[in-house]
């Protein structure tokens, strides 16, 4: 069904107008991060008189950002990997064998989307496991926090993977392990990447959990380093925006790489849940 080109152009223009409401606030950050403190005192869209790249240098030194960047990277990526691995396996079995028990297990995981996390009791559990204040401890917590939504995503996606493949593989003598890891898992790429990115994001952007579960300053991630830095530079909007740009960049990078998948993954995953 063809539309009139004029109408299409109008629609395109209108959508861009809407997109402006997203881009406006975001460009505000970038513009103001390049101003001097006095220029940025009243946050406006006016362009800076002179680009203050020095803000970025200062933020790097003042916030010891490199160290916390690697902490964040470690916590976010390992927890996302664990979460994806265990949930994809679980979801596969839950989809393929929908008996009464498995349906209950699925609902049990679904509870996690709704239930409130309790930090003090979480600390107590971690203490019992001797994982309090360690990277493995917080990584496992982050991985766990991602499980409910990831189960939801994988469950929907795997439902759309035809069972003929399974049958063929079983006839070829594959066990569950080879069936899943060699045959099915490669097909889950879009949702795996989506789940990985969402989990990664969750851990990357979470600033409250580490505050309670990590008692070590040198293990804190970027968001926490930044928030502490706010404390000192609370009235320098240019520095605040500089730091925001620095935290967002890695996430943005990841998003641009994975966006081809993220949307199709979200789509097919969430649809059949």
């Amino acid at each position: 069904m063809r539309q009139k080109p004029l109408l299409l152009i109008m629609k395109e223009a209108m959508t861009w107008l809407l997109a402006l409401s997203i881009l406006g606030p975001l460009s505000l950050i970038v513009v103001n991060s390049l101003k001097t403190a006095t220029e940025a005192n009243t946050v406006t869209m006016n362009l800076p008189l002179k680009l203050q790249w020095v803000n970025y240098m200062e933020a790097f030194e003042g916030g010891s950002l490199l160290h916390s960047f690697f902490n964040s990277l470690l916590m976010s990526s390992v927890s996302a990997a664990i979460s994806i691995l265990v949930t994809s396996m679980a979801a596969f079995v839950l989809v393929r064998n929908r008996d009464r028990w498995n349906k209950m297990i699925y609902n049990y995981f679904f509870l996690g989307l709704v239930a409130p996390l309790n930090y003090v009791t979480t600390i107590k559990v971690l203490q019992a496991l001797h994982l309090q204040n360690t990277f493995p401890g917080i990584i496992l917590v982050f991985a766990t926090l991602g499980i409910p939504f990831a189960v939801f995503l994988f469950y929907g996606f795997i439902s759309s993977v035809p069972t003929e493949l399974d049958e063929a593989a079983i006839i070829d003598g594959c066990g569950l392990g080879r069936l899943f890891f060699n045959v099915v898992f490669p097909l889950l790429m879009p949702v795996t990447i989506t789940g990985f990115i969402l989990n990664f994001l969750g851990a990357w952007n979470d600033f409250v959990t580490p505050l309670y579960l990590l008692n070590k300053q040198d293990k804190l991630g970027m968001i926490n380093a930044i928030y502490n830095y706010f404390g000192v530079h609370f009235n320098e909007w240019n520095m605040i925006f500089t730091i925001i740009v620095l935290t967002v960049l890695p996430v943005l990078f990841l998003y641009l790489i994975g966006q081809k998948y993220i949307i199709s993954g979200m789509v097919s995953g969430s649809l059949k849940g």
Binding site: I123, Q127, Q132, K216, N228
Partner: peptide
């Protein structure tokens, strides 16, 4: 000396909950 710095609006929470859990 290792400073454990919490944001101003979180400090009391964090300290209390750490005492509660023996940390």
């Amino acid at each position: 000396i290792e400073f454990l710095i919490s944001p101003d609006d979180q400090y009391v929470n964090v300290l209390k909950s750490k005492f509660q859990t023996g940390e």
